[in-house]
Simulated assay, not measured.
Amino acid sequence: MNHPLACGRGAARTASPLRKDCTEIELIWLEKRLEHWIRFGRIASERIVSRKTRIVAFRPDAVVAFVRWSANDFGTVHSRIDILRAVRPGEAYTTAPFVRPGGELLLSIQGWPKVHKVLETIDSIEAEGLDPCDVAPEHWRHVHNRLSAGEPARAYTVERHQAWLKRKVLGQ
């Protein structure tokens, strides 16, 4: 039985109002040609469309890293990572391919060398014992801006995270 608050198949059959609240991302895998995957994010539900396609849903305010990669016979053609926050109904959002309806774009980087640096940044955050889903949104914007300018980004440490959590509590 599906959870009554799920965004998935059960919600679709019953036309649950929460379904409209979820942000959906289409994941595709065509071996050695096209890959879309989630690097991090708390998936609320998943719907398998075919052997090569599935759709995952995220609740409002969830932060997710969505990676897209494609290649041809000569190598990688395109690589991109977007880190976005799933929006609430009525909030403004940025559209992104394969993301419905869209999200608040915190980071958007193209090109394998820069995408690789973002993946290393995510790895270093996890090495600190932190979940990238919980990182301050400002840090993802900082990483985006620094990499876009060809500069290294500041490390996200436990101390920075504690400061973010305190600011978050004060803002509520």
Rank of each mutant, 00 (worst) to 15 (best):
P4T: 03
G8N: 04
G8L: 08
A15E: 12
A15F: 02
L18G: 03
D21T: 11
E24R: 06
E24N: 06
L34H: 14
R39Y: 02
G41A: 06
G41Y: 03
R42G: 06
R47Y: 08
I48P: 07
S50D: 14
S50I: 02
K52N: 14
T53L: 10
T53K: 14
I55D: 08
V56C: 15
R59V: 06
P60T: 09
P60G: 08
A62N: 06
A62I: 01
V63L: 10
V64H: 06
A65T: 11
F66M: 07
F66T: 06
W69E: 12
A71H: 01
D73P: 00
D73L: 10
R80C: 11
L84C: 05
L84M: 15
A86M: 05
A86S: 15
Y93L: 15
T94W: 06
F98S: 05
F98L: 15
V99G: 09
P101C: 08
L106C: 05
S108I: 03
Q110R: 09
K114T: 06
K117G: 01
E126R: 15
E126I: 02
A127L: 15
D134T: 10
E138N: 12
R141F: 04
H144R: 08
R146W: 01
A149V: 09
E151R: 14
R154E: 15
R154C: 04
A155H: 05
Y156T: 04
Y156K: 05
Q162S: 10
A163I: 13
L165E: 15
K166L: 14
R167T: 12
V169G: 00
V169P: 00
